[in-house]
Design a protein around this nucleic acid. Structure first.
Lengths: 141, 141
DNA sequence: CCTATATTTCGTCAGGAGCCGAAATGGCGA
DNA sequence: TCGCCATTTCGGCTCCTGACGAAATATAGG
């Protein structure tokens, strides 16, 4: 366990070195979420989000748990590798604030209904939070 | 400055997501070093080491300073992004210990002499620290 | 048991990362 | 001023990463 400190650290930092994965972690700070909710917020293909979650899990940053038809992800223990995440800096990003605002609305929607419309959140009467004018503040790739 | 928290964090974590760069940071904890010393320890092409240092610098983790014919690198201020580096875990890696042992010898050698033999440290009478039997513990790529 | 559907796995493709050697840069000393 | 040499930049190569869609898997519910 002590023998691979560098390899472990590299894996953890790799997992954190991606805007989408940081946004996922920031979202999970507000409580567990299922894949479809994160997919709706990130606007990526479900398979892509699944891959990100898998990477976060193998880095020990999140845990998964089957919850009926859905899979729920949550932050791993606070004293694990996650303890090093710079939450304060993360919270300062406008994309994170935007995600949270969207999530607040999304949490009110039953998963059944959310998954039915998937790509078109406006059909649920949810306005997408508008990021600062002048283009996307944080690209996803 | 607060607007790009995610982008900044991604840059920092990317910089930390590489065995060679972690080893560089661990080496610099013992004090400033010039490029040729780190090149000798890492056994990579000087251009490669230079690129790694450039990445660490643009992430705000190290500072450079011209010192005559050589360029000296040192850790950036402790309260910067470097504050988040998990030194305790890093120190646990055998490659880090090995690098430090080699550096102890290397520091005794004048830079003039070190650069003259570059690739063959054994010419300086320095035995390369032998990592735990069974192969390299931490690959560089 | 069979269907619907949420999630994961697989195949594929474009772009990025990391390495090297060669050429360019910049400071020191003759 | 000129050559030497440590370092950086550039070009090219290989391999990894991240994206998608299609197919496979697994679960709820009829």
């Amino acid at each position: 366990m002590a023998k691979q400190a560098i390899a472990d650290l590299v894996r953890t930092h790799k997992a954190l070195a991606h805007p989408g994965r940081l946004r996922i972690l920031a979202m999970l700070r507000g409580g567990p979420l299922c894949v479809c909710q994160m997919t709706a917020v990130l606007k990526l293909a479900p398979s892509t989000v699944s891959a990100h979650l898998s990477e976060l899990r193998s880095a020990g940053l999140v845990n998964e748990r089957k919850e009926g038809k859905w899979v729920e992800y949550r932050l791993a223990e606070e004293d694990g590798p996650a303890a090093n995440v710079a939450w304060e800096r993360l919270d300062r990003d406008p994309a994170v604030a935007s995600d949270r605002a969207l999530l607040r609305e999304l949490r009110k929607v039953p998963l059944e209904e959310l998954c039915r419309v998937e790509l078109d959140l406006s059909k649920l009467g949810i306005r997408l939070p508008v990021l600062a004018a002048g283009g996307r503040s944080t690209s996803l790739r």
